[in-house]
């Protein structure tokens, strides 16, 4: 690959947007996080592996935009017991790459490690993430977020934070 052809300014902009996305998710700022989404956004966390077809096989999360909204409202209901007491999360996102540029959309890949402290335990999660970002005005909106968990093939505990 040629390093000369990398669009560094676009990469930096995408990174900055995704750093904000990560921080809002870490801090359980549900409404602010939801506002990043495009109207046709899809949030996908497959079970087993990245190769499954979410239209045919089970996913841990496979939310269209309206289901994202239900998820957020459930968090905000005050009765989402799986997230109450509040789950503490800090994630590191790294290894950013621009994978594709397609008109006003850009596909960004990165890795993420999450330290998660729930009522019953401290957990470490890891994933490969892919984001399809759409340029709007002078920023982005989130058209697709895929979270490929490293251990998606194993039995997992509750996942009641924004991964």
């Amino acid at each position: 690959m040629s390093l000369a052809n990398i669009n560094y300014s676009l990469l930096r902009e995408a990174e900055q947007f995704l750093f904000v996305e990560a921080r809002l998710a870490d801090e359980n700022r549900y409404e602010d996080w939801e506002s990043l989404w495009a109207d046709d956004g899809v949030y996908w966390v497959p079970a087993e592996n990245a190769e499954i077809d979410p239209e045919k096989e089970m996913s841990i999360i496979y939310d269209n935009r309206s289901r994202i909204s239900v998820r957020i409202r459930q968090f905000l209901s005050g009765k989402r017991y799986a997230a109450d007491p509040e789950i503490k999360v800090r994630r590191v996102v790294s290894n950013f790459e621009l994978l594709e540029e397609d008109g006003d959309e850009v596909l960004v890949g990165c890795n993420a490690i999450y330290f998660v402290s729930t009522e019953s335990d401290d957990e470490v999660w890891g994933s490969r993430n892919e984001f399809r970002l759409r340029q709007v005005g002078d920023g982005f909106e989130l058209a697709r977020k895929n979270v490929f968990l490293v251990n998606a093939h194993k039995a997992l505990p509750n996942l009641a934070f924004l991964i």
Binding site: V45, I60, Q74, R80, Y81, A82, P157, N158, L159, A160
Partner: peptide, 11 residues
């Protein structure tokens, strides 16, 4: 793990 029902049952 992230289900609207089962995450709450599980906790």
């Amino acid at each position: 793990p992230a289900g609207f029902l089962l995450a709450d049952d599980s906790v």
